[in-house]
Write a protein that binds this DNA or RNA. Structure first.
Lengths: 126, 126
DNA sequence: CACGATAGAAACCACATGGTTATACAACCA
DNA sequence: TGGTTGTATAACCATGTGGTTTCTATCGTG
């Protein structure tokens, strides 16, 4: 399991409320650094540092728009993190049985993805 | 949302591979501190510190068995963390359509749970 | 070209974290 | 009572983190 460091970085990135807020904001669409910094009582370099952490965890990627460096959310590491949590479905089942099948499905999706493709065979309800 | 600090503590606790390993071990059943310390190239006080972090995040609880202080996994904070991740299902859907329905269901389960019930249709396969 | 705006880098500070060793406390056993 | 086992605490160290301010670099516009 070489993804240990990725999990480390992902969970560490998620452990800060500012960074979670940034991700929440990015879930609504791309944003520049200053746009991201606005709602926070914090300097722009501080936000840049947070973005670096998020970038290192692969949670955001950056583009180029003139001197702007727009950020966008990358969901893949979140998937890894969720997959790790899902590994506890066996234990969870003691208290939350209905989750069992769902998280089991997530595992299946992971393996499908690892195999190379995740074309949706039925494409139901998107 | 007052659970910010709980999320902080939970994700921070999960960010360390030793602590994740401890949780993995505990998912298989209760264990004492020395039992938990054994597999690691690390002193017992170091493990105690990790346990303190896990305890502060509510991820483990401790019992009493003579001079042993057995640890057991507590899943509730993991649920909170997963719920947070699930909030991004809308974004995930762009790339991983099949997850959408699943994570959507998790939301439903959360609400059902809040309401009070979650009967298990089969409970098989662990 | 110079200016203004956007963003990154450097240097610094306070504090948290992850580890160590040594010590103390608590509970059982002889 | 004393010894042994299990665990927590203390003191300490190195490093990481989150913030600051200041400075630099890049890009578009006048």
């Amino acid at each position: 399991m070489a993804s240990t460091e990725l999990l480390d970085a992902t969970f560490a990135a998620l452990a800060d409320p500012t960074r979670r807020a940034i991700l929440a904001r990015l879930a609504a669409g791309e944003a520049s650094v200053t746009e991201l910094a606005e709602p926070f009582a914090m300097s722009q370099p501080a936000i840049s540092k947070h973005l670096k952490v998020l970038e290192r965890a692969g949670l955001v990627s950056r583009g180029r728009d003139a001197q702007r460096r727009p950020c966008r959310l990358e969901a893949r590491p979140l998937r890894e993190a969720t997959a790790w949590l899902a590994d506890y479905r066996g234990y969870w089942a003691e208290s939350y049985q209905r989750l069992d099948a769902l998280l089991d499905e997530i595992q299946a999706v992971n393996q499908t993805d690892t195999a190379g493709r995740h074309s949706h065979p039925d494409g139901s309800r998107g």
